[in-house]
Write a protein that binds this DNA or RNA. Structure first.
Lengths: 333, 333
DNA sequence: CTGAAAGCGCTTACAG
DNA sequence: CTGAAAGCGCTTACAG
């Protein structure tokens, strides 16, 4: 900028005005044109660091997911990025792998990079960041999680109870009577509600509590093997629901390996969309979260906070209804 | 920082020294202790924006992939992020979707954010960035691509010829005689070499040119249908290789839907690892790229450039050997 | 052992 | 219509 100014013989300030389109009505057109063309010729691009220091706006959003190589989060990341770009923002990602320490370290990094807003999938035991961010007056929105200790925190997530209910209803309609579901060893409210919904509707419609199996994320491969054996041959379930995409991938690969008749011997439903579900011998029914709408809502909410510094917006907890995509794995015929 | 300084009654400079651990030998220990504890109490975290402006180091790397929701790239992103973190760097991502304009826009964004280094999967027609970055003296490394016009650009990629060759050799060993492969309509050198290797070895070992099919990325679903029909019933191939993960997902879902005997009627091999391959009725053989090693090499190379401003490092084109993970889809018995 | 001062590359209220 | 000047929050060579 200094180079441009001295080359043309004007002040740095004037260059700044021209390049930012300010006060255009009061600037000599020819001077402006000269400045613009020189800037283009020099391939000038403003130093955002300096700009941000002055304006304290970085037009960058921070996103912390559980695991970027997990399809659910990489899809969300994609939609969030698109939506953010659309509003002139960019996104920095990080993966916390459900580890509170790792989460906090990324959070501090993003904060020190002065992101304008934060989108967070907060792991268990890291929810302390909620009052902290509120105290700092830092715009943020939680995705895919909620914490009963902080009902006022803005959160965007699936109506998980509703999701489970519609899955169970669908299975029962299709003649399944002994329901099983597989979840993981995390106390996330999201998972608890999927479980609660499953049990509730199962009980009320079948007079029988569904079997719920829990595997540890760290030993999913081996434990899944046992769960499937137990559910099929001991509990004699006639259907299995996998509560996350990752659980589903592990479970389905085991079932694929044992040549089980799906859906006749075993009905299957999964959470979240994945191309992989169509590689399974019978295409798999899944519950689809409306990721584009959820991403849009997250960004809108965040930009609302940023622009208006309007904290009346916080406290809005948005639960989205998803939809069941019915394929052959859960349709007896 | 100002607050800390005035609270304790020292200069801002001193606070800076203490907090950055500079000149520790010459600073009064008690003063230092006071500063540190107050900083901790105030939850002070330095403004990286200001720091970067002064030091012109952001400790941030920029990564542009083709599509972050594509498993291959999200895995690479994960490893790159891990490796970068390990060296005290962080990573900003962007997806260009093979669109040169989108690529350039993200590139400029990252540049204006003053990233210290760049890791780029450059789309076709965007390779002009190579001389531009070189002229700017901007550290960068290309991944998963190379451009014959710029042989001197540092690039990390698979030895694609070698990969194809070992796939073909494996298929022939297992009794397959009429080979087919599916690729997409991109002129990427990477894909061309996979093709070249396939044809070359096919010809030399079988005295017969393999069938190569091309689908357009935008119409993959419908065209794949035709390709598979044609290959099976007209060209009568006895094996099919899918040249990328995305092509594989589409192709496998079609094959899954038509109840084809794999591997007896049709052998299958894919490029790149995916959990999904284990959902297929017979687990799918795939060629695995050594992503952790490649990511490490990319970061090491980049940090080398950044630290030493050592341009003798450029011009190193590293081709990595992958390995074939043999499963039942390509093993007749 | 500590501080005053310049400067990183911008923006913007103010004065002319 | 244009410029001089202050300042964003840091760092660091220099002087004391």
């Amino acid at each position: 900028m200094k180079d441009i100014a001295s080359e043309i013989g004007v002040s740095v300030a004037l260059v700044s005005y021209v390049l930012n389109g300010k006060k255009t009505d009061k600037i000599n057109e020819q001077t402006a044109a000269k400045i613009k063309s020189l800037a283009a010729k020099m391939n000038y691009s403003p130093n955002q660091i300096a700009k941000s220091l002055k304006t304290s706006r970085t037009y960058t959003l921070g996103l912390i997911v559980a695991d970027i190589s997990n399809l659910f989060y990489s899809s969300i990341a994609k939609y969030i990025e698109q939506e953010a770009n659309h509003h002139g923002y960019h996104v920095i990602y990080g993966s916390a792998y459900e580890d509170p320490e790792r989460f906090n370290s990324i959070l501090h990094l993003l904060l020190s990079r002065q992101v304008d807003g934060l989108i967070l999938a907060i792991p268990e035991k890291a929810e302390g960041c909620i009052p902290m961010l509120t105290a700092l007056n830092q715009p943020f929105v939680v995705i895919d999680r909620k914490f009963s200790a902080y009902p006022e925190a803005p959160a965007i997530l699936l109506d998980n109870m509703d999701a489970s209910k519609s899955i169970v209803a669908h299975l029962i309609e299709n003649g399944f009577k002994r329901l099983g579901a597989v979840t993981i060893n995390r106390n996330l409210v999201t998972l608890q509600e999927r479980k609660k919904g499953y049990i509730e509707v199962g009980k009320s419609l079948l007079k029988k509590k569904p079997f719920i199996y829990e595997v540890e994320e760290e030993h999913m491969e081996t434990q899944m093997e046992n769960v499937i054996q137990k559910s099929l041959f001991q509990d004699k379930v006639d259907s299995l629901c996998f509560f996350t995409n990752k659980i589903a991938m592990t479970g389905l690969s085991k079932i694929a390996a044992m040549d089980m008749a799906v859906p006749n011997k075993l009905g299957i439903v999964c959470f979240d969309e994945a191309d992989a579900y169509n590689l399974f011998k019978t295409p798999v029914t899944y519950f689809k979260q409306p990721l584009p709408e959820m991403s849009k809502a997250a960004i809108d909410h965040l930009l609302g906070q940023i622009d208006k510094k309007d904290h009346s917006l916080t406290g809005k907890l948005a639960e989205f209804k998803g939809s069941l995509v019915i394929q052959r794995s859960s349709r007896k015929s």
